[in-house]
Nucleic acid binder design. Structure first.
Length: 453
DNA sequence: CTGGGGAGGGGGCCC
DNA sequence: TGGGCCCCCTCCCCA
């Protein structure tokens, strides 16, 4: 027999203990503000804490202190409240930073919810825009009721006062004169943090074993430039996407909270993707619909295509779905990854790195330094004392840029291989020389093997 | 301190 | 819609 309320009461009790500072064995210092918590809860809620606390598991009798500079106390309040209540108080103002912090702390659920929060606002905006263009002449009753139906299960509007122990500015707040939404997310799945740990995350955990408790940043994380996070989050984007799909949403949106602005008459113009009033009032012609413009909900940038907006949004969300299989560096765009791979790992430019002269297979060679490759002409090779450099092509795996397959599967090579072989760019001092055949660069490059140790 | 070059990153746009 | 190319800008390193 199972009493479903037990979990809730258990969490509630833990939260009560936290507020009363009972049995708290962890102190988290965020920009000078101290948060007390239970290591068990932190461990169970965050992959980052899991890693940190498992490192220090031998000293469980000692109180643990963690320090963060990567996000604000307010943001961590939201995170901590979620850990202890399952409720995530998101607003249009804090979603980016909460997502950054969640990414840093490797909290898949929170990341997914933040992404969905962002995505939802875009979807809503898009649908509303479509409706505007298709029904612009009709008097549509847009009191927000319809919009509510856009959400599935999992979301609930926090129309009541903010969570009791939220700091005052974390609840429904006003910023720049715009009312903002305040969502609470109740995870519908019972996935444990452990189950959610992807292969990639597990690998990272093993890598990070050597780190000590403190403000260190995970090294293989997407960069969240829009927040205070100066480092990367360990959440692999593919996994994020997968997690996102698993999230069931249940939302009731209070129209005046969501950050929409209502156009004149009955038109509802989503703030995020609002077509400027001028554009709407001055269409180019009756047959020529106003040109579609997609406005970023987080900045003033406007693009013509939704795909471009989607791409642009990555600079706000920090999502980096494209990891380099050679060095592990992550990119927000595939073309940037391709460019990086060609430049750094394939030495595609037939230019001597030292003297900048054009080199051919006869006049130059590819030099491998760790996972990095470049070309040197024979003269520069001689000057560099290339004779003394070890040439070791035997024990190396092929290093090639995946050309086909879907976005997810093409990276499995790297994920799998780096589970036991961690490639760190520029760490190697070994150089490997490979003959260049400019006549068939691609085919030749496939035979060049990285200097994986 | 400054200029040049490499690398990364963002936007526009074509296919 | 995604992939890819081109262009431009910024940052960083180094001479």
């Amino acid at each position: 027999m199972e009493i479903s309320s037990h979990q809730f009461h258990l969490l509630q009790q833990l939260n009560e203990q936290r507020r009363q500072d009972l049995f708290c064995d962890c102190s988290i210092l965020v920009e000078g503000k101290v948060f007390k918590a239970h290591r068990n809860v932190l461990f169970a809620s965050s992959g980052y804490f899991k890693m940190l606390l498992s490192q220090g598991s031998k000293e469980t009798s000692q109180p643990t202190t963690a320090t963060f500079q990567a996000f604000s106390p307010d943001t961590f309040t939201v995170i901590l409240d979620f850990m202890y209540s399952g409720k995530l108080s998101l607003t249009g103002q804090n979603v980016i930073e909460v997502m950054s912090a969640a990414s840093y702390l490797q909290m898949t659920d929170v990341i997914s919810v933040c992404k969905t929060f962002i995505k939802s606002s875009l979807d809503i905006s898009e649908k509303e825009k479509d409706r505007y263009f298709s029904l612009s002449d009709n008097n549509v009753n847009s009191n927000g009721v319809e919009r509510s139906s856009l959400y599935g299960a999992g979301w609930r509007a926090e129309s009541s006062p903010p969570h009791p122990h939220l700091s005052p500015d974390q609840g429904t707040s006003m910023m720049g004169g715009n009312a903002c939404s305040n969502f609470s997310y109740y995870p519908t799945s019972q996935r444990s943090a452990q189950q959610q740990l992807s292969k990639h995350e597990q690998r990272q955990e093993s890598v990070k074993k050597s780190r000590h408790l403190g403000p260190q940043q995970p090294s293989d994380m997407p960069y969240y430039k829009s927040s205070k996070l100066e480092d990367r989050a360990a959440e692999p984007a593919g996994h994020m996407a997968q997690a996102e799909e698993q999230v069931q949403l249940e939302t009731e949106v209070e129209p005046h909270h969501v950050g929409y602005q209502y156009g004149q008459g009955s038109d509802v113009i989503p703030r995020g993707l609002a077509v400027s009033q001028q554009e709407r009032e001055s269409p180019r012609s009756s047959n020529d619909l106003p040109r579609m413009r997609f406005k970023c909900p987080f900045c003033t940038h406007v693009v013509k295509r939704k795909a471009d907006l989607k791409r642009h949004l990555r600079c706000h969300t920090g999502e980096r779905p494209y990891p380099c299989e050679a060095c592990g560096k992550r990119f927000s765009r595939l073309d940037h990854l391709s460019s990086h791979f060609r430049t750094i790992h394939q030495a595609c430019k037939p230019i001597c790195r030292k003297c900048k002269r054009h080199v051919t297979e006869l006049t130059g060679q590819v030099v491998q330094e760790g996972t990095r490759r470049y070309r040197l002409c024979n003269e520069c090779l001689a000057e560099a004392g290339i004779d003394r450099i070890r040439i070791d092509l035997e024990a190396e795996a092929p290093l090639e840029f995946p050309q086909d397959g879907d976005k997810d599967s093409r990276w499995h090579y790297a994920e799998d291989n780096r589970s036991d072989v961690e490639i760190v760019e520029d760490e190697s001092t070994d150089l490997v020389i490979q003959q260049v055949d400019d006549s068939d660069d691609e085919a030749d490059e496939k035979e060049v093997k990285p200097n994986i140790r």
